[in-house]
Design a protein around this nucleic acid. Sequence first.
DNA 1: ATGGGGGAAACGGCTTTGATGCAA
DNA 2: CTTGCATCTTTGCCGTTTCCCCCA
Length: 948
Amino acid sequence: MRPVSWGKNIGTKKKPFTYIHICTGLYMHSEHLMILVPLFPLLAPHRRFDFQFDMFDQELRGLHMSESVDDNARGEDKADPESYRREAMEYASNPEKDDVDNAEACPRATAEEKEVAEFVHKAHLLCLLGRGRLIDSACNDPLIQASILSLIPTHLHKIAEAPNLTASHLSPLVSWFHNNFHVRSPNVAEKSCHFALASTLETREGSPEAVAALSVALFRALNLTTRLPSWDVYPGFKDCVMQTAIANGNFWEWFRQLLSNSLIFRFVSILDVISLKPDADKSESSVADGCKNERDIFSSSTLMVAGPSCSSAYTVKPSPYVEQDSSQTAIRGAGRQKADKSRKHELQSQDSLITDKPTDKMSEVSVSEVPTDTSEPCLVKSEGLKRKGDLEFQMQLEMALSATAVVNSHVSMASDASESPSTSTLTPPSKRMKKIRKEESQTCSNGISTAIGSKKVGAPLYWAEVFCGGENLTGKWVHVDAVNAIIDGEHKVEAAAAACKKSLRYVVAFAGHGAKDVTRRYCTKWYKVAAQRINSTWWDAVLEPLKELESGATGGVVSVECEASCQKKVEVSQVEPSMSNSCGASMDSCEKKATESFMRNSFASTRGSLEDMELETRALIEPLPTNQQAYRNHHLYVIERWLKKYEILYPKGPVLGFCSGHSVYPRTCVQTLHTKERWLREGLQVKAGEVPVKVLKRSMKCSKEEAGDDNDYAEVDHQGITSLYGKWQTEPLCLPRAVNGIVPKNERGQVDVWSEKCLPPGTIHLRLPRVATVARRLDIDFAPAMVGFDFRNGRSVPLFEGIVVCTEFKDAILEAYFEEEERREAEEKRKNEAQALSRWYQLLSSIITRKRLNECYGDGALPQSSIEIPKSGDKCYNSSATATATQKTEASPECQQVNIPEKLNAPSSMPTENHEHEFILDEKKVDEGGLTRIKRCHCGFSIQFEEL
DNA sequence: ATGGGGGAAACGGCTTTGATGCAA
DNA sequence: CTTGCATCTTTGCCGTTTCCCCCA
C-alpha cells in the first residue's frame, strides 16, 4: 500500500506553501481523503497548503478542494494562482525532473527537501493509519463476521472455549483458514475495505490485507460465539445463585473464567511508509515513477507474496522464519549467494514473463520460484535501494519493463499474477488461479522451496494479534499470521521483513477504531528503527486519541493476586463497550463492593498498561550493539568517545560492557553541561566554589585575534576557555529583592527576562507595548525587559518587550496604561476620520472644479452622467479629458503624443482659477492598445498620454 | 494665541555573522 | 573526508519623522 505523494514548495520565500499531490495509488480512496484532510494542519502547522487530489470522487474533490484552496492557500495570495497551478501540475506530472536537477546541483538533501520528505512521510503515515482503521472497522462488520462464521466447520467453534487460551489452541483454526483462503495480487479497482473483504469472502482469495483482515474478522466472530451464550446464562445465574455466589466467591471464579476465555483480536499492520529521508525518497520516487506506468499492471505495491508458493515455503512448521532466525549468521554467506542467484532468477523470470510464452518448463520453474511475478518489479522497486549494484539492477529492470510494457499489460489484463497462457483461456481467471495454486502448493508442499533466506520470501505486512490469557501470568498478545499459517512468530517477523528489504518502522495494531504502536514487540534493534521514524512527539500526539480508543476496546483489567498461593491471572472486568453495557446494567452495589474488596487484595492494571510495560521492558533489555557507531545516538547506551561537546558522564558508571575496548555506560549517566550564563537563563546559578567539570578551549583563530589585541598571554589563556558546569552544580537563582519600589537592574540598567524565574523577587514583567512611557509619566521606577537577542546586520541586537516594575505598582500602571491606550485609540480614530473627511473634501472639490471647467470650456455634448461621483475604483479621468484625448488619438495615430485637451493645455487658459497644475500623481494603466500614463494634478485636472 | 525653529525621542531600514559541531 | 545544516553567539548605525518645548 503506497499512495505516492509528492510535495513541493512554491510561492514566495516569505509566503511559502506546499503543494501536495497525492496520486491515489493502489488503495488510495476517498475515505482516506476524509481522514487525511482534517489532519493536514497536524502535519506542518506553520505552512500553507494547496492540495491536488487525483482520481477522487468528484463531489469530494469539490468539497475539499474548494475549502483548502480558497481559504488556506489562495486567499491572500496576490500572485497569479494559475501559474502556481501550472507549476504544480508540471511538477506533479514530472516530479523526478526537479529531483534530478537538485541531485546534480547538490549531492546532499537540502533542508527544503528534508522538510518535504518529512511532510510526505507524515501524510503517508496518516493515510496508512486511516486505512488501518477502516480495515479494522470492516473486520467488525457483523455481516462479514456472520458470513465467515458460517463457513468454518463446527468443531472449530469450540476452540475459543479453552479455559486458558494459549497460542497452540489456535493452530487448527489458523490451518483451516490458511487452507481455505489464499492471497492474490490486489485489484486496482478495489472499491472499499468492506467490499474487498466481502469479495475475498466470496472468492476465498484476495489481497494480503483483505485476507489478513478476514482472519481477524473470523477470530472476532468466534469470540462472540464463545462469549454470548455465557452472557445468556448470566441473568439466570444472577437470580438463583447471585447472593451465595458472591458470598463464597464462586461468582467471581466464574466471572474470571468467562472473561479469560474472551478472545480479543487486533489487526496488525506494518505501515510501509515512504522514507523519511529525502535521499531514500529520491531513489524511491524515481523507482516509483518507473513503476508508475506499470502501476495498473503490477498493481501491487504491497510485498505480500501471492499464493502458496511462498506460504507453503513457510507453512505451519518448520517455517523458513525459523531457519533464518536460528541460523542467521551461519547462512549469511550462503544467503548472499542465494540473494545474488535470486536476483538473477528475477531477471530471468522477468525476461521469461516478457519475452517467452511461459509454456515451457523453464517458466514453470520461475513461476514457482518467484512468488508473484507481476508484483516482483514493484517489490524490488518500492524498496529504498542503497547499494550501487541494486541501483544498476533496478535500472536494467526498468529498461526491460519500459521496453515491454505493452506485453506486460497484456499479461496482466489476461490475468493477474502467474497466469499462464497455456491454461485454458475459457475458464474464469479466478478458477484458473486456484487450479494453478493447487498445483503449486502440491509441488511446494513436497518440500521444494528455494526461496528461503532470499528476498523472495514475502514480507508479512498484515497479521493478527490475539490476547491469550493462558500464555503468561498476566496473559500475552500472541502474533497470529493466518495468511502464512504462523502462530506466535513475533520474533520471526523482523527477519522475514528484512529478507524482503522491508524496514519495520511502524507496526500498528488496530482495534475498536483505535490504534496502538507495537513496533517494539517485533523489532530487536530499536535504536535502528527509531532513527527511521518520525519524531516521537508528533507520532505520540497522533496516536494519543487512537490509543485510548484501542485500549477501550481491548483493555480489560488484569489482576494478579498478591497471595503467593494464588499466582493466577484473573480478569475482573471487561471494558469492551458491549460488555460494559450489560455489565453495568446488572451490577448492583453488592457486586461493586465485592469488586472493590477483590481489587484491594490484588495488583490490578489494564491490559494496555501491562502491554506498555512489556514493550518498554523489551526496549530496556536491548542487547549491546557491537559497532561503535551505534552508540552515537543509542537511546540506552553510550560510550565516552561519542559524547558531544556539552555532554559528560556523571556519575561515571556502572560499566555495562565493552565495545572495541571502550566502556559502555547507560545513557542515563549522560548530563548536559552549560556555561554559567546559560544556566542563568534556566533560572539556576552555579553554586559558590564549584569548579567547572569541563573546560573547552576556544579556537586558535579567536585566541590569535585576542593575542594580537592584548600582549598579556595569561589573560588570553584565561579568555580562550569556556567553563562548563553540570546541573548538579547549580542552585535556584537568588536575585536581590526589590526594595522601596526600586527594581534591581543589571549593569546595563535593565533586567534580562529569559523566563519568569529570572525576575527579581517583588517585581513583575508587564509585557505590553508602550508601557514604558506610562511608567515614566507616573514617575515609577522600572527597567526595560530584555527577552532575547535578534541577529540583524551581522550583529546581535537585544530584544526588549515591556518593562519590569515592582509588584505594588502593577495595578496603577495597568490602569493608567489602559486609559492611555483608550485615549490613543480614540486619537487614532479621530485622525482617521479627519483624514477621510479631508479626502472626501478633496474629491468633491475636484469634481466641482471639473464640472465648472466642463461648463465653461466643454462642447456641451458631454453626457451629464460623466460628472457624477464615481464609484470606488472608477477613475476621475474617465471623463471629458480622456474622451477628447481618445478622439485625438483616433484622428492622429502617432505614437508619442500628449493628449491634452486643446482648450486646457495651458494653465493660463483657465481664467476661473489662479492655479498652476502640479502633476504629482503619475499613474500607469495598461490598455489593450499599450501603456497609458495619466498625470494628475490634485485639483482634478489630468492628462492622459500613451507611451511607446 | 499661534507659528516656526530646534532638539530629543521614536521609528524603521539597513543587511543578512560566522565559527563550530554534528550528521550524513 | 566533505559538506550542508543547526547551534551558539549575544547590547548598532543612521536617516527620517514625530513630538515637544521655547521663543518671537
